[in-house]
Design a protein around this nucleic acid. Sequence first.
DNA 1: CATGAATGAGCATTCATTCAT
DNA 2: TATGAATGAATGCTCATTCAT
Lengths: 233, 233, 233, 233
Amino acid sequence: MTIYVEGPIMPRITPERREARRAEIVAAARRCFSRDGFHQTSMPDIAAEAGVSAGAPYRYFASKEEIILAIASDAFRLVFEPVERLAARTDHASVADLLAASLEALNADTVTDAAGREVPVDELLRCAVQSWSELLRNDAVRAPAVEGFQGVLRGITEALRRGQAAGTVPPAVQPERAARVVMGLLHGCLLQRVAFGLTDTAGFGDELSALLAGVDATSGRGGANGTTGATPP
Amino acid sequence: MTIYVEGPIMPRITPERREARRAEIVAAARRCFSRDGFHQTSMPDIAAEAGVSAGAPYRYFASKEEIILAIASDAFRLVFEPVERLAARTDHASVADLLAASLEALNADTVTDAAGREVPVDELLRCAVQSWSELLRNDAVRAPAVEGFQGVLRGITEALRRGQAAGTVPPAVQPERAARVVMGLLHGCLLQRVAFGLTDTAGFGDELSALLAGVDATSGRGGANGTTGATPP
Amino acid sequence: MTIYVEGPIMPRITPERREARRAEIVAAARRCFSRDGFHQTSMPDIAAEAGVSAGAPYRYFASKEEIILAIASDAFRLVFEPVERLAARTDHASVADLLAASLEALNADTVTDAAGREVPVDELLRCAVQSWSELLRNDAVRAPAVEGFQGVLRGITEALRRGQAAGTVPPAVQPERAARVVMGLLHGCLLQRVAFGLTDTAGFGDELSALLAGVDATSGRGGANGTTGATPP
Amino acid sequence: MTIYVEGPIMPRITPERREARRAEIVAAARRCFSRDGFHQTSMPDIAAEAGVSAGAPYRYFASKEEIILAIASDAFRLVFEPVERLAARTDHASVADLLAASLEALNADTVTDAAGREVPVDELLRCAVQSWSELLRNDAVRAPAVEGFQGVLRGITEALRRGQAAGTVPPAVQPERAARVVMGLLHGCLLQRVAFGLTDTAGFGDELSALLAGVDATSGRGGANGTTGATPP
DNA sequence: CATGAATGAGCATTCATTCAT
DNA sequence: TATGAATGAATGCTCATTCAT
């Protein structure tokens, strides 16, 4: 005898499984994009890399652009989050500290994403560089990127203000401008690593410290500062 | 309509005319690339923008990639040349001077190319960002770009060494690393300008000076702003 | 959620329930087809409109074509049945009577199908027009449609013959040809209603009467109505 | 020596050649559509039928829909033009004359299009039936079709009014309604020919005459129309 | 039985490139 | 030389259908 209860029938795959599948597709897309670029990668390429059929990605993303957007977001988050986190919690960070914190993420081999999955940093950084191109002409990429960037800038600015109050940041520093310098160095370092083959990013942060500290160190001397072209006799 | 009588072989157009035509095509491509991106621009788009037939660009460039390459080269040259030039000729440049010199180019509205033609800086910078994506996976773009970058780096390094000898650069500075910091700031600033809408690049260079000078300032000197080459005794 | 215990084979749903489900799917398909056309409607569209899963329609129909076939049949039946019914039972119908009977169905808002379900006439008529396209190249649609059409034609022909015997149809009328005229007017009227926006189908039938009666009128006799074929010598 | 005059260079193909090529593609599409239907015909099918490459049709039509539209227009024109032409020039047409004129076109094997090319009538009529489906949900097809239809209706209406003035149309006829009857019969006849396999459209028009004349005949005037085989003495 | 994820062939369309004129 | 028509492979995406759960 058959007993049955009317009611909605459960989906064939659990939300976890679905999420895992989506992540596989994202990971495959990231590998493809990192290797071949957003526009040299076709949707069939992504499907093949993920080991699924050509139609499968469309059950998880409405379009190729949506995949690009997801990966660009991940990439920007990787770059922005560490420095934002430090900026949020410290009251006596120096400029060099903030930069060092942000560069740290670039030096890791992998990061762990929100769902606990390991993601190769190098892939994400290569996607980040491509996302810069993308945001030039794609509002869906630009808007959140710009907003995220401004958020980080604000975070750093505030941290520097607190640092000035705490005496760890020189009073002559203009927080808004310095925040841009920190982000500029971060982006510049990122680019050197992935595009120009200079993977030694550690020295990068160190050198800013050295530049500042070096001046400081010599500060017995007067015009230790390089800007002063005219060092007095 | 063209009427012509066959005769002894001679170029149908003068070399000057040919060069001008090529430049028109490059300029059209640059406008398209700047507006729509390398891969969203089709060859017919470029031809239409240049006001020539679909086949015409192929008489000047073997392929679309070659046009991209030409424009990427122009873009990299714009970024590298000013700082390289300063580095080559000065014996007592400070770190901030070098950065200021390189940022200057980014602030102009137009530059003059090798053939004396005016080129909008903004277009070139947008193409530069896209070229970064391109060089990730295109050897023809990467090789000269990396070489150019290393050349600039060497130039700055040498200039800093000479600066240390001259006393305008603190001895604690490591020239190789500092050169990378300068280029990192240059690229970071460029990106902020074209991708994140922060066009105030002037303050950017100023702030590095301030950071350095600020430290200095704490050691007794007031001059908050590093750009002032002329610090009185 | 469905809980069930295996047991002796028995239908999981009652035949009534199954039939009702099938009817829902047909109704959903009819709405979709009427709105978007046979070929702009996808199977997922139909399933969604019916509120069932994508696979469900395949438990009732082997293919999309079978659904089209079912609906085309309904549509043709709607058009053919009323006139066939009148033709079958009358012994003294005039040409105009037959036409009027067939047009009546087109003027209703809904009809009741074999299972007693209300079906919007407009939906069915729109499907009928599409079925004409379909039968041009689909034998499964054409064969029954042509057979049905010929059946109606025969029915009308016979009715006209009986009418001639009864004196309600003029002897000069050729029954086969007149039957085609009746059906032609029916189809033409249908098309005007659904495709050309002329919903006033009532006047349509009236006018044929007028045309016939009008001629009659000019010949001196009062018989205002063409249905009165019975002009005695 | 080469003499040349600057100026626009002529296109490689003459406008005539271009027009001929376009006509070939239209003819190929018409054959495909007539055989397989609008939506079962793919663009590659059309290109192959025309003996050109897959991309070629896009140099003449922006999209598949545009090809459909062009052919639907041709089809509607074929149906509307003959009756419209007669209606425009006659002052003493009878209802039967107008119908006969419009049916004549359906009986031809080929018609000559605006550019003087022979077009098989059967193909066009099959496309006409499909266009009826198309106009149900495609505004680009519907708008001109409805407008054309209303134009013909007006033309017939006016002709009937003039006929009433001339005494060739009975005064009891309501011109608007009769015009719709004429068009309804035309469409119904068309459908019988292409969809239901009844190619004898001649008898169709004859019978309307018979229906009218038959009545008339009984009133003493004699067999007005040759179709009425059975004119009693 | 019912679900809905998955498949994979197919489609409309684009575009880098060629080449007859 | 310059033109622009033509090519044909490739792309993003859809959808009828299947089948494991």
